[in-house]
Design a protein around this nucleic acid. Sequence first.
DNA 1: TTTATGGCTGTCA
DNA 2: ATGACAGCCATAA
Length: 111
Amino acid sequence: MSRPIADALARAERFYAVIARIPRGRVASYGQIAALAGLPRHARHVGAALRALPDERAIPWHRVVSGDGSIPDRDEGLGARIQRELLRHEGVPFSARHRVVLRECAWRPRG
DNA sequence: TTTATGGCTGTCA
DNA sequence: ATGACAGCCATAA
């Protein structure tokens, strides 16, 4: 297997591991996940990892949002719609314009 | 080697 | 609050 691919998979695993610890009802940003995984400034790669997430991998991917609480529109906005639904189901508060209220549900590890 | 492109982010107008 | 824009870093072409 080529090095770039192997590295990408290794990064993805680290991201998944961090995402797996996000408590129900809380959310974390892409950049936050990257930092907690020990890879600062790799926010976009978190997105890439989630895009490639296998269906059978049961991790709370929906608890990962943008730094401002918004949810990026991918897949013609369908993905974002599903994500909001899952979060709302967990009791995550939303403000106008479909943005998560980070004040109340931002995940703060060890805090 | 250079350029473009992302499920991002921080600044600044 | 919103939008433009530049950084960011790994891949792809």
